[in-house]
Structure formats: C-alpha cells, structure tokens
C-alpha cells in the first residue's frame, strides 16, 4: 500500500510551523519560520517542508491549517482550531498527557486532553500579553539580551527578584527600576519567569490540573519557565523536543485521521 503523507501548518502570530507526517506516525519533514500570519512565513514554511521531504503538494493526502492565521491560509483541505490540534499533537508527542499548557507568542492556553488524546475542555488567557512569549521578548529587550538566553541566565540565578504578574507594561517598568537598583540580572530573569509561571498556573488551576502535565508552544523551550511552572504547580511537566511543532503535528495527524476515516 502506498504511503500516506499529510501536512499540518500552524500559522501563528509570530512564527509559522509546518510538518509532514508519513502514515500518521513518522515525521517526514518539518520547519519553523520566525514569521507568522500575514507575512511570507507560512509560504516559506510550506515550501521548505515539502522540499525537505522531497514531496510535491499534489502528493499530499491532506493539508490541514491551524493557528491564529488558519483562516487566511489558502489551499487547506481542513481548517481546525489550534486548541484541537495542540491537544492531538501533544497527546501524540507526550503519550498519556492529560493537561497541556501551551504558551505561544501572543497567548497562553490550558487544555484538558482525554486519555484518547482528544480535547475535552480548555481555557485561554485574556487579552493581555502578560505571561506569553511576547512578555518574555519585551523583558529580554529591556535586559539587553536575547530571549533564547533567558533559560541559561535563570539557571545561574541565586535568588528570585519578585516581578508583577499582571501586566506587561507595569512589569517592564518594575524591571527597569530593579535594574536601577543594580540587582543581579540573573535573579531578575528568575523573577520574570516566576511571574509567567504564577499567571499561567492561575489559568491552569481555573481549568483544573490533572497529571501528567505537558507543555507545548515556543515558551516550552525555556527551561527556566518550565522549572518555575513546575514549582508553582508542584507537579513535573513533560516537554517534548518538538514542543513548538505540536500544533502542526496535531494538524497533520488530524488530516491523516480524516483520510483514514
């Protein structure tokens, strides 16, 4: 029987992720372009993934779009919400996971996944960048560092400088005033991570936390945030190396399941 290739594309607010699954299990190719909806990002992610897999668009059994820009992506066979796709993807990447915390560029969500990997219920953050990837970017800029350096700085922290968890703008000025006091930047980073954790844990508790807990989305790559969140929730958190691609993975899997009937 011929192999079935399905593609999932997760058009986010700040990044575009694309992934091709072979027969619903094996990753044939994937790509991540740091440009989201309304940019060349989705097109580039699609082209790059097809190229890496050595496939043409016509050879795909299904294309499923998800993410913030899913409705503007042309050529999708299926359009599915990022919540359902993240649940599917997380359950495949972290088998048995029941609670998924997804922190992306602009929003944070907490999902309850059924033992079979289906989305059961969810909560999304309100319209505020606090506790999201954007929040960390703003903080990194104030600290004159790159967001990718934050985890390492946190690792070396000796203490935690408390930072407000309610608003990006207030938190930014708090960070600036702490800098003026000459506090250790690494302790400040730990404080920033703790503030993200407090906010996200609040969202998770509102939904109810059922173990095991897993994390997806770009912020899952930041071990400092993961550690702070584990402490806040008092529970271990699994993170897949493919965490950022969970939505695209779920979308590709959705297409495969649809084609399989």
């Amino acid at each position: 029987m011929a192999d079935i290739y399905t593609l999932g594309i997760d058009v986010g607010s700040t990044t575009s992720k694309c992934l091709i699954l072979k027969n619903g299990t094996e990753i044939a190719a994937s790509s991540l372009i740091p440009a989201g909806t309304g940019t060349s990002g989705p097109g580039r992610a699609l082209a790059e993934t097809l190229n890496d897999a050595g496939l043409k668009l016509e050879e795909l059994a299904a294309v499923t779009a998800t993410g913030y820009g899913r409705n503007t992506f042309e050529g999708a066979d299926f359009v599915v919400s990022e919540l359902s796709c993240h649940a599917l993807g997380a359950a495949a990447l972290m088998p048995g996971v029941r609670t998924v915390i997804d922190i992306g560029g602009q929003d944070a969500k907490v999902l309850r996944v059924s033992p079979a990997g289906r989305l059961e219920r969810f909560l999304m953050n309100d319209k505020c960048a606090a506790g999201t990837g954007r929040f960390l970017e703003v903080m990194a800029r104030v600290l004159e560092t790159d967001v990718s350096q934050l985890a390492e700085m946190d690792e070396k922290a000796k203490g935690v400088v408390p930072i407000s968890s309610t608003c990006t703008v207030f938190a930014e000025s708090e960070v600036i005033s702490q800098l003026a006091k000459n506090v250790d930047i690494r302790d400040l980073v730990a404080g920033i991570h703790a503030s993200v954790a407090v906010r996200t844990a609040g969202l998770a508790r509102r939904l109810g936390v059922t173990a095991p807990v897993g994390m997806t989305g770009g912020v899952a790559r930041n071990a400092g945030v993961v550690r702070a969140l584990e402490k806040e929730l008092n529970a271990p958190i699994a993170v897949s190396p493919m965490a950022q691609l969970a939505g695209a993975y779920g979308a590709a899997l959705y297409g495969f399941k649809k084609k399989e009937g």
């Binding site: 599915v80 919400s81 990022e82 919540l83 359902s84 989305l119 969810f122 999304m124």
Partner: peptide, 8 residues
Amino acid sequence: SAIEAFAE
C-alpha cells in the same frame, strides 16, 4: 478560536 474548538 474558542468557539471553533468548542464546536469541534
């Protein structure tokens, strides 16, 4: 997004 996911 929330309504779509709810419908799903």
